[in-house]
Design a protein around this nucleic acid. Structure first.
Lengths: 141, 141
DNA sequence: ATACAAGTTCAAGTCGACTTGAAGTCAAGC
DNA sequence: GCTTGACTTCAAGTCGACTTGAACTTGTAT
């Protein structure tokens, strides 16, 4: 597959594909002179990347997961990420319920409805400055 | 409360408080010459903002929710946001389960384990380019 | 042979959410 | 009356994830 095909099939612009390659997220072999050619698993890989991004991972984190740097490290990382997702899910659930309520509540300002606030407080364990933002500062090299 | 107190109580640097004010997220009355003074509800408001950010709303979206621009519009917006959160929650849940499995799975590369991939595909309804990124392009005036 | 489309590199620009820096204001303490 | 320290404004910088632009090479069509 050449870059245009992959771009079309994935919906990603070719600039993004080049950028991902530069970041080490995907690979290509240069068939002819300098043109990129992609293998059949490229779409699956891109889907995975997109999924990871959707779940809140940074590109750097996704790179780390792809390359099994250390066998132990990755498992720990994965578990930790799962835990983060778990609390994020709880938060979003509370937020969703709060929003649903607010959409039906007749309080003048949604954000001042006591029921709404109570719902939100469930998620508000980590108020203000979120301590784990799902992507930590990572300081590459 | 002056800005230092709010900063300490909220954990937000004063630069952020000024920035939020500029964006219209919070207000202050200038007591003495030019120094900001904040009312008692400021912390609640900041908590709400933080919560919204955590849930994936942009600052512009949060501003819109605070100001009841049109009574109908906001309800619709809120419902729509709740729906978005709902699908996001489903995605994250699948991702979390996938990660949990991967953390225990003995496949060489986690992202190549078929069970992991199957789990992820549940979330993969919207593969690649995510169509609603939870923050839409909004083009302010 | 030449034009053209599609690829390439590399540098710079964009966007949201802040942060940082320079330069100035002001009340309080010495 | 002058320093100090906490505030102020405004401009510019940062960071991640891309996008855009300029300049260049290549394979195919005319």
């Amino acid at each position: 597959m050449d870059i245009a095909e992959v771009a079309k099939a994935s919906g990603l612009p070719s600039s993004t594909l080049r950028f991902y390659e530069e970041k080490g997220l995907i690979q290509s072999n240069r068939s002819s002179a300098l043109r990129r050619q992609y293998g059949g698993n490229i779409l699956e890989r891109l889907a995975l990347i997109s999924l990871g991004r959707n779940a809140g991972f940074s590109l750097d984190e996704i790179v780390e997961m792809f390359t099994p740097a250390g066998p132990e490290i990755n498992r720990v990382l994965l578990s930790a990420k799962a835990d983060e997702l778990d609390s994020k899910i709880k938060e979003l659930t509370a937020m969703r319920d709060g929003l649903r309520h607010a959409a039906e509540c007749k309080a003048p300002s949604h954000f001042e409805c006591p029921k709404f606030l109570r719902l939100l407080n469930i998620a508000g364990k980590n108020r203000f400055r979120q301590p784990s933002k799902l992507q930590e500062k990572k300081g590459k090299n």
